[in-house]
């Protein structure tokens, strides 16, 4: 790790001011991404601004019936929170299926959205990677890309967005609230993640020094009937090969409301809008699910080793929806 200096801040204004003033500085939250990437020289800030003392770790009710997750709330605390578990089980499940208990005790939800890709070329400073070193090429395109994306890719970058939480949030239309040098903003979660397109180095619309203060979950009754399905090679402590976040309500055998997002297969947490369109109002049957899955994966592009993800994603969608419907029928 290169030498770094360290500051600890106690209020939001100082946090933003300090990082804004120093282009070589960055926020340090749980550190589970930041310290890791510093140690392998993928990120090389000269100064860490520790924001763990900021009063941003609460979980609060919003007047409209939504829920506000403080940016510094820990993954484990959010996952265990009764309101999250009851009203947004998909969020709790996505969190609990991510990382490990120790990491979840450290990691913040804002940091989780900000984590960087797990592409091994990105993590190897001697390898070509457009995201880490723009213009050097994409090592994964013709390389070891079993874990890479099949949706939202470009010829510049095919790295999968690694967050599980973000997939659940995208399904629910959460809002990311920030504060920065230019004041506060609210960013719909879907706009928070950028496609790689021609600038894979740009992942978020945030400016330097802009702080994620909270994530707002909207009041959304259907979210109580939601779940997160994560498929991977080992049973725990691994990123997703394919993940599905789904919320659905069925009335008289027909899908009354549907929210669907995919993880592990796309360069950003992937809201499956095409599938939602197919499903909206359709009979709650395996046929509909399959048809929706086909439509959603229609634009998928494989890069060799990750070919299987296309079919796996389809089947996982069917699985998630089938189980949700069964659960609802049982309830």
């Amino acid at each position: 790790m290169r030498p770094v200096s360290y500051s600890r801040v106690a209020d939001v204004g100082t946090a933003i001011g300090t990082v804004t003033a120093d282009p070589e500085s960055t926020f340090l939250a749980g550190g589970t991404t930041q310290i890791d990437l510093l140690r392998i020289y993928v990120e090389q800030p000269a100064r860490l601004v520790d924001i763990n003392d900021l009063p941003l770790n609460g979980i609060e009710e919003l007047p409209d019936g939504g829920l506000r997750l403080g940016g510094l709330a820990r993954m484990s605390d959010v996952a265990a929170h009764p309101a999250v578990r009851e009203r947004y089980p998909v969020v709790s499940e996505a969190l609990l299926l991510g990382a490990s208990p120790q990491l979840r005790n450290m990691a913040t939800v804002a940091g989780n959205l900000m984590q960087r890709v797990r592409c091994s070329y990105f993590r190897d400073t001697e390898a070509p990677c457009n995201k880490r070193a723009p213009g050097t090429g994409c090592g994964a395109l013709d390389g070891v890309n079993r874990g890479h994306a099949v949706l939202g890719t470009s010829d510049r970058c095919i790295a999968t967005h690694p967050s599980d939480l973000a997939v659940a949030l995208v399904a629910l239309d959460a809002v990311v609230r920030t504060e920065g040098p230019a004041g506060p903003r609210s960013i719909p979660i879907d706009d928070f993640f950028l496609l790689p397109d021609r600038t894979p180095e740009r992942e978020h619309p945030l400016t330097h020094g802009e702080l994620v203060t909270s994530i707002d979950l909207p009041a959304l009754p259907v979210a109580a009937r939601s779940r997160y399905v994560k498929i991977r090679d080992r049973e725990s402590y691994e990123f997703a090969l394919v993940a599905v976040a789904a919320a659905m309500s069925v009335v008289a055998g027909r899908i009354a409301e549907i929210r669907l997002a995919l993880g592990g297969v796309a360069t950003k947490p992937w809201r499956a809008r095409a599938a939602e369109q197919v499903l909206d109002g359709a009979p709650a049957t395996a046929d509909s699910y399959r048809r929706a899955a086909e439509v959603e994966l229609e634009p998928a592009v494989s890069h060799g080793m990750n070919e299987f993800k296309i079919e796996l994603a389809r089947r996982t969608i069917v699985r998630a929806l089938t189980e949700l419907a069964e659960r609802e029928a049982a309830a």
Partner: peptide, 25 residues
């Protein structure tokens, strides 16, 4: 362990990427 033949290096030389069983397995 997966080799990238163009670089001649292992592409998953870490315990996050070279999977060994965890308790749940």
């Amino acid at each position: 362990t997966r080799m990238d033949p163009r670089l001649g290096r292992w592409a998953n030389a870490s315990l996050a990427d070279y999977l060994v069983p965890v308790n749940a397995d």
